[in-house]
Simulated scan of single mutants.
Amino acid sequence: ALLSLAAGHFAARRLRERVEAVNATFAAVRAGRIAARAPDAGTSDELAELAANTNAALDQVERLIEAQRHVSDQTAHEIRTPLMHLDTRILKAIEATDDPVLLRTLDQSRAEIRGVVRLLDSLLDIAGTQAMRGDLRGLADISLSDIAESLADLYGASAEELGIGFHARIAPGIHMRGDAMQMTRLLSNLLDNAFKYVPSGGSVVLELAPGPRMAVQDDGPGIPCADRERVFERYVRLDGARGQGHGLGLALARAIAERHHLSLHVEDAEPGARFVVRPEERDA
């Protein structure tokens, strides 16, 4: 009886270890380690078949991710190249004429072409960033404090020209694992949005605190409760914006935040709006 009990205990422990190895593989993939695979136990039982099927499914997921990236890059190249060639031809036509009406029309055409290219780039950025959610490849230790300080210097000069007060409260030494270019894009999109809506004589505040926790606040007209989720959808533009755009900046900012396991939402600043970026709440 003791021998049977010991054998049963050993078999149960062995079974539990092999199941936990498969579960650990899925947890690693969810955490961003796309190349993680279930270990080969060297047997030919049902659990070995489950591990093999798990690895085959993960191989297919990885191939689909790489294929999506390749298609996005190829699409961008195939569309952007003829547009830039067309822009070059229009520029040559501008240089060859003095007709003011024709010059105005050609200038408008060039502006529209550049707008289409920016729209294409933004859509591809959003799609690519959403596809990379949880993918740790390309991420490194970055200094959010340095990124925020650089943006504060840049936007401080722009604010002075526009007659807008700009204040930065940036805690030093804040680091995270992320993509420096994307985190710069996230903060700059939030700042661009604030500058679009704040009136001359108003103010914009950039904050960075441990967590990391980032916030961009303005004292403009604010965002109604009904629109506080809608503003993160593609092509949404609220009334009163300064300048033109496609309504994709906040959609991209949220996609970047989610890729880095951060949340992005908007609050009432009374007056104005306050966009807050902070770590996602994990399920218990």
Rank of each mutant, 00 (worst) to 15 (best):
A1R: 00
L2R: 04
L2D: 10
L3V: 07
A6W: 01
G8R: 00
A11G: 00
A12M: 02
R13M: 08
L15R: 07
R18F: 04
V19N: 01
V19C: 08
V22M: 11
A27Q: 09
A28G: 04
V29E: 02
V29G: 05
V29P: 02
V29F: 03
A31D: 15
G32E: 04
R33G: 04
A35E: 15
A38F: 01
A38D: 07
A38H: 02
P39Q: 03
P39S: 02
P39V: 05
P39C: 03
D40R: 03
A41V: 03
A41C: 02
A48C: 05
A52E: 10
T54I: 07
N55L: 10
N55V: 10
A57L: 13
D59M: 01
Q60F: 09
E62C: 06
R63K: 10
R63P: 03
H70V: 10
D73N: 10
Q74S: 15
Q74M: 09
T75K: 00
T75D: 09
R80I: 09
L83Q: 03
L86V: 09
D87C: 03
D87I: 04
L91V: 09
L91D: 14
A96E: 11
D98F: 00
P100H: 02
R104H: 06
D107F: 05
A111L: 09
A111Q: 05
I113Q: 01
R114G: 15
V117D: 12
L120Q: 08
S122Q: 15
I126C: 12
A127T: 12
Q130V: 11
M132G: 13
R133D: 13
G134M: 06
L136R: 14
R137K: 05
L139V: 08
A140Q: 14
D146C: 05
I147E: 14
E149Q: 14
A152C: 10
L154Q: 10
L154N: 02
G156S: 05
A157Q: 12
A159L: 08
E161I: 09
E161H: 11
I164P: 10
H167I: 15
A168H: 04
R169V: 12
R169M: 11
R169H: 13
A171E: 15
A171S: 15
G173E: 15
H175Y: 08
M176D: 10
R177S: 11
G178W: 01
D179S: 13
N189W: 01
L190C: 04
D192P: 02
N193C: 07
N193F: 08
A194T: 07
Y197Q: 06
V198S: 05
V198Y: 08
V204Y: 05
V205A: 07
A209R: 14
P210Y: 07
A215S: 15
V216I: 13
V216E: 02
V216Y: 05
G222K: 06
C225D: 12
A226S: 12
D227R: 09
V231W: 02
F232C: 09
L238M: 15
D239G: 14
D239R: 14
D239Y: 01
G240E: 00
A241V: 03
R242A: 14
R242W: 01
Q244V: 11
Q244Y: 09
Q244H: 05
Q244L: 13
R254C: 10
I256H: 00
A257H: 06
E258D: 14
R259C: 12
H260A: 08
H260W: 00
S263L: 05
S263I: 08
A269T: 06
E270D: 13
A273L: 02
A273N: 06
R274P: 09
F275P: 13
F275H: 08
V276D: 08
V277D: 04
R278E: 15
P279A: 09
